[in-house]
Design a binder for these strands. Structure first.
Length: 134
DNA sequence: GCCAACGTTGGC
DNA sequence: GCCAACGTTGGC
């Protein structure tokens, strides 16, 4: 199993929206690097759900329930989506500032490539964020 | 193929 | 609201 992190602006689609919907297709990715990451996601992979712009924190865990397919919101064949389902919230959201101040998380693309919206996370990083979120 | 101009993202 | 980082576009 692999681990990922996706960003969403809560004003557009928040964690609560995902919980309410149960699942959603992850659309709107228009960046090749992020798209390539979507393509590598496998069913069952865990996904950290991060709120950008407002909140700046990891708020919940989701999982991949359907692997990549053509983005239904565009006819442009370059773009894909995956289906994700809410697994559960973090009891304590993990702030970006907490991630930045932890040397063990310094290598996350979240910090190094702040504009990337879909990124891989190592198991160590994933477990550590879960631990912080307890 | 280079690079300037421009648009977007996202933290502050 | 500003700006840095970065991706994309288009002229040459």
């Amino acid at each position: 199993m692999r681990y990922w992190l996706v960003k969403s602006e809560p004003g557009t689609y928040s964690w609560d929206d995902l919980v309410k919907d149960g699942w959603t297709y992850w659309d709107g990715v228009r960046n090749y690097q992020a798209r390539n990451n979507l393509r590598e996601m496998k069913k069952g992979d865990r996904v950290l759900y991060y709120h950008s712009n407002i909140g700046l924190e990891v708020v919940g865990i989701a999982k991949v329930i359907k692997e990549h397919y053509q983005d239904p919101t565009t006819s442009d064949e370059r773009w894909v989506v995956v289906d994700i389902e809410a697994v559960g919230p973090l009891k304590t959201p993990v702030k970006l500032s907490d991630i930045k101040s932890d040397p063990r998380l310094k290598n996350m693309p979240l910090i190094k490539h702040s504009r990337l919206s879909v990124m891989p996370v190592t198991k160590k990083e994933f477990d550590l964020i879960l631990k912080k979120g307890k």
